[in-house]
Design a protein around this nucleic acid. Structure first.
Length: 575
RNA sequence: CGGGGCGUAGCGUAGUGGCUAGCGCGCCUGCUUUGGGAGCAGGAGACCGGGAGUUCGAAUCUCCCCGCCCCGACCA
């Protein structure tokens, strides 16, 4: 039984000055966590109970799916990370340290290497596969900017799993098993979430999905179709286009367009010169980009910007993308800033990527590659050739859902889980092979699956809190029932004690506010702030043989008879 | 790393060159109170982020450093 009289807990009346988002504010005010340093937090008893409940749910679901729990150190040697090139690649996000002999170590930001090596050390036959193993472990990342309390810390707890299969079919099955387990886990945690298709990103690999918990303070944006439920990471959103259906365009026509380096100024001139009807989306913007060392041109409708993140994610094998700088233009004297068109790209040796909206046969107004000159009726397939189509234009609310054609919205969310098919990247780098049925050595294919355990505490707080405090789903709350004894009357205290003991005997987790000093008002406020789902008040109504039961979430209150309180409360709580 | 803001008691804050650094919450003692963060009285608690400087005198001005928050870049 948790007793408020002895619990290490001090609630705060004021919001901490350094907390912005609700989960951070409330977790600090309600005495769940305390900040130690930027992105580093301590858990007080209430917080740690909650944390462990989440951890327990995650563990139970992993075990139920048949995955085996293992545990790795946080303090790791450099060598394995050297082999996968991540000692370099991770850059300054990696916490590095040296031992007394000046050897390099790191604090694990993620454990692909360790898992791979563990399997390599034990297994060597296809008969041993498939295998899925996981751990729940503290991870360290020296984030450039930790923020939002425990949503994004530099030290945090994550459950990470890895699957090992002999072939792609097996990987797909393992992936689905994890996906199913995640759905169960997050559902049990009381989170509302969307599964969105994502890009595999820096980890390499192919198929990838994120579990996102929608909430206004989330730092991930994603695309959601409210009609059909399609959800995608902005990077992974695909564009729906129809084939060109207009008349065959007139021949290309170059015209004078002085002082029109921007799309706006160009549209204005077009309407003046050609009698109206022109809008920005009839023009074609040629955005020059350096993709690693290579110059490329990205074509998008004039009313849209290029989203460099989307571009980078969709250009396979490219590390860095950046916009052209003045210096780059000097290397391509044929390109006139503000008047670039795709017509001469071949001549300049520039690869053309185009937004899918630039459909074959469509015609555009675009630069004529000469100062103060534009061209119209510039037609895709006739006047220029697209080398490849790419999803690189910014995504906007109102764009059409690729599945059902309804307008999508852009929503914010917290990423609580991420699953993806890693493939053979790590197995290859660390030489994890098994013998197949023919006695031939095969590189194992892997999947990687993460759940932010500490982050889930914050995500649930974000989704369930209200103006007056936290409000936990029962399964993860620090207790099932919060009994508040008001007043100093002996009978009240005794009744509350007995009720607490009886409820506990029935298997409920009970917190009892047996503090002598605080007034009833203080106790009510604390109970609401702390957020245990059921609150029972033993107070003045006891004179009439009544107690009061309150549902934290809905605010409902009802009187119950003291005589039958144990059963009544038990029934309501376990309903 | 760019832009903005902030460091004064456990928490929230006032104090822009002048005496012993003020207030609220919380904490301790006593009395009163006890269904919505109570009242009265008394009390403890601060190297004013650190260092250097200017000055008769610095929480206050200057410089450097450190830490923290927000936006952006970044982020299995």
């Amino acid at each position: 039984m948790l007793r408020m009289s002895t619990l290490l807990l001090r609630t705060l009346r004021d919001d901490p000055a350094d907390a912005e988002v609700a989960s951070h504010r409330l977790l600090v005010r309600a005495g769940y966590v305390r900040r130690i340093s930027a992105g580093i937090y301590s858990w007080l008893p209430l917080g740690y109970l909650t944390f462990r409940n989440i951890e327990r749910v995650v563990r139970e679901e992993m075990d139920a799916a048949g995955f085996q729990e293992v545990h790795f150190p946080s303090l790791l040697p450099r060598e394995p990370y050297e082999q996968t090139n991540r000692w370099e690649q991770y850059g300054s996000d990696l916490f590095r340290l040296k031992d007394r002999k000046d050897n390099d170590y790191l604090l694990g930001p993620t454990h692909e290497e360790m898992f791979t090596l563990m399997v390599k050390g034990e297994y060597s036959s296809y008969k041993d596969l498939p295998l899925s193993i996981y751990q729940i472990q503290t991870k360290f990342r020296d984030e450039p900017r930790p923020r939002s309390g425990i949503i994004r810390g530099r030290e945090f707890v994550m459950k990470d799993s890895y699957s090992f299969d002999i072939d792609d079919v097996g990987l797909e099955i393992s992936y689905q098993k994890h996906r199913d387990a995640y759905v169960k886990t997050f559902t049990r945690l009381g989170l509302s979430f969307n599964i969105v298709s994502a890009m595999a990103g820096a980890m390499g690999g192919s198929k990838s999905e994120e579990f996102l918990a929608p909430c206004p303070t989330g730092e991930d944006t994603y695309v959601l179709c409210e009609k059909c439920g399609y959800a995608a990471n902005v990077e992974a959103m695909t564009t729906k286009v129809a084939a060109y259906s207009g008349d065959a365009p007139a021949t290309l026509e170059v015209f004078d367009s002085p002082d029109t380096p921007t799309i706006d100024s160009l549209v204005e001139l077009l309407n003046k010169t050609f009698g109206g009807g022109y809008t920005a989306d009839k023009t074609l913007k040629n955005v020059m980009v350096m993709a690693d060392k290579k110059a490329i041109s990205v074509l998008v409708p004039g009313d849209r910007e290029v989203d460099l993140k989307r571009l980078g994610a969709n250009l396979s094998g490219v590390q860095e993308v950046r916009l052209f700088e003045d210096e780059d233009f000097t290397n391509f004297p044929g390109l006139v800033k503000g008047y670039i068109g795709p017509q001469d790209a071949k001549k300049f040796g520039i690869t053309i990527y185009a937004d899918p909206r630039i459909v074959a046969g469509s015609h555009w107004v675009t630069g004529a590659n000469a100062k103060d000159k534009h061209a119209r009726f510039v037609t895709n397939g006739r006047d220029f050739t697209v080398d490849a189509y790419i999803e690189a234009a910014e995504v906007r609310a109102g764009d059409l859902c690729p599945k059902c054609d309804s307008p999508v919205i852009i929503d914010r969310a917290i990423e609580i889980g991420h699953i993806f098919q890693l493939g053979r990247l790590y197995a290859q780098a660390l030489d994890l092979t098994v013998l197949d049925q023919n006695g031939k050595s095969q590189v194992v294919t892997m999947g990687s699956y993460g759940i932010g355990v500490s982050r889930a505490v914050a995500a649930i707080a974000e989704q369930t809190h209200d103006e007056i405090g936290l409000s936990w789903p029962r399964e993860i709350a620090p207790a099932d029932v919060h009994i508040v004894a008001t007043g100093k009357d002996e009978n009240i205290l005794e009744t509350a004690e007995k009720l607490a003991a009886d409820l506990e005997a029935k298997g409920l987790r009970v917190m009892l506010d047996d503090r002598k000093d605080p007034s009833a008002g203080v106790k009510f406020k604390d109970a609401e702030l702390i957020g245990i789902p059921f609150i029972v008040i033993v107070g003045k109504a006891l004179a009439e043989g009544k107690l009061e039961l309150r549902i934290r979430k809905s605010g409902e209150k009802c009187e119950i008879s003291a005589a039958s309180a144990v059963d009544e409360i038990y029934t309501v709580v376990t309903a």
